[in-house]
Computed example of a mutant assay.
Amino acid sequence: MIENDFIPASYKFEKEEGRVQWKAPSNIALVKYWGKKQNQIPANASVSFTLDNCRTITSVVYTKLDKENKEFSFDLIFEGKNRKDFKPKIETFFERIERYIPFLKNYHFSINTSNTFPHSSGIASSASGMAALSLCLMDIERQMVSEMDPDFFFKKASFLARLGSGSACRSIKGNLVQWGEHNDIMGSTNLYGIPYPYPVNEVFKSYQDTILLVHKGQKSVSSTVGHNLMHGHPFSEKRFEQAHDNLKRLRSIFAEGNLDEFIEVVESEALTLHAMMMTSIPYFILMKPNTLNIIEKIWEFRRASKKHLCFTLDAGANVHLLYPNNEKKEVKKFIKEELVAYCENGQYICDQIGFGAKKM
């Protein structure tokens, strides 16, 4: 599909008012995307696990205005509080998608949203948030046309979500989602995420993700700023090649269930992501001392136990522990005995692979 395919020809009718609600999951990238071009196009392709418990729940109440407004009309409640500081980001999102959702200035929208996890702490809150909002808008559009193919519905929702936050396009469907053009991945595109199109061993379909909350505060550098620092980065081209090669390598790893090679790719990707941050100009570090302490403990545990626990990181200090479901008992014991001490207030989130967004 191309961008113009997402521009509606016309609407059969416009509803006067209504309410829609969706929940969308966060996701954790295995091969990271870091750096983007104009219009939220990724500099390299990526693949992610969709999560289950870490999600955003968003409801939108819409009321038709007497006449089309010159500006977007909406209010935003985040976790029970009116957040005017969030409005510029939503306005930017609406500006980007107005061409594809032309009814935006015909309605007032009351947006009420909340997360099941800490905001702005290295868990992809912008991904799940923009995914949930995009699905709500698509649900409204679906009510204005005579019929809409379900596949088109989710593709366009992913397309819209990408324009709000790149990784949000991977939070629509599950459980394994690929985004970005890649010559060796059938159906891949820069415009939206797709369900991973190749065989995946059963071991990966029940994978566990325990998120250790090392730091729950605001990040010192936003992901948007970090992505932009890849322009002119001395190692960017090699990094993009590495991501391309790792995606190619994962095809056989996913098919065969090769956990040792999976660990090697995933941990390398996580450390490379942060290496790009530490070698950009200006440079910055989002990991905390306890992030490194946890990584060392994971390596010690894996050597001693021969279990397949590994880590990955998003753009933050928190550590995602990935491990197969059949090793959950031993890993949970290790977390409680060894790793909780490195978490802020001893807090962590137990999650697992999920299967995409759902209407509520």
Results as ranks from 00 to 15, higher is better:
residue 236 S to F: 00
residue 48 S to G: 06
residue 23 K to R: 15
residue 312 T to N: 06
residue 168 A to V: 02
residue 190 N to G: 01
residue 347 Q to V: 11
residue 217 G to P: 05
residue 21 Q to I: 12
residue 140 I to T: 07
residue 43 A to Y: 01
residue 222 S to R: 12
residue 216 K to I: 03
residue 111 I to Q: 08
residue 164 G to Y: 06
residue 296 E to Y: 10
residue 202 E to V: 09
residue 198 Y to R: 09
residue 332 K to R: 14
residue 209 D to T: 12
residue 354 G to C: 11
residue 316 G to H: 08
residue 218 Q to M: 13
residue 238 K to E: 14
residue 154 F to M: 12
residue 40 Q to V: 00
residue 73 S to N: 13
residue 311 F to K: 08
residue 244 H to R: 13
residue 294 I to H: 08
residue 78 F to N: 10
residue 141 E to N: 10
residue 282 P to G: 06
residue 137 L to S: 02
residue 56 T to L: 02
residue 35 G to C: 02
residue 31 V to G: 04
residue 10 S to L: 06
residue 219 K to F: 05
residue 86 F to N: 09
residue 45 A to L: 03
residue 250 L to M: 15
residue 227 H to S: 03
residue 56 T to V: 06
residue 38 Q to W: 01
residue 36 K to T: 00
residue 305 S to I: 00
residue 129 G to S: 11
residue 304 A to I: 02
residue 21 Q to S: 11
residue 66 D to Q: 14
residue 333 K to P: 00
residue 98 E to R: 03
residue 75 D to R: 15
residue 278 M to S: 12
residue 173 K to G: 03
residue 352 Q to T: 14
residue 17 E to G: 00
residue 352 Q to M: 12
residue 302 R to E: 00
residue 250 L to C: 09
residue 24 A to D: 04
residue 58 T to S: 12
residue 32 K to T: 00
residue 218 Q to F: 10
residue 95 E to I: 02
residue 269 E to P: 01
residue 61 V to P: 00
residue 325 N to C: 13
residue 222 S to W: 12
residue 296 E to M: 08
residue 293 N to Q: 13
residue 150 P to R: 13
residue 162 R to P: 01
residue 87 K to E: 15
residue 34 W to M: 03
residue 133 L to Q: 07
residue 168 A to W: 03
residue 268 S to C: 05
residue 167 S to C: 04
residue 133 L to T: 05
residue 325 N to F: 14
residue 107 Y to S: 08
residue 205 K to G: 02
residue 36 K to I: 00
residue 246 N to F: 10
residue 94 F to P: 01
residue 5 D to R: 13
residue 154 F to A: 06
residue 171 S to F: 04
residue 222 S to D: 10
residue 89 K to W: 06
residue 190 N to T: 04
residue 298 I to F: 05
residue 60 V to F: 07
residue 262 F to Y: 15
residue 314 D to N: 06
residue 193 G to D: 05
residue 81 K to G: 00
residue 57 I to D: 12
residue 145 V to S: 08
residue 141 E to A: 13
residue 128 S to H: 02
residue 251 R to E: 14
residue 237 E to C: 02
residue 346 G to M: 07
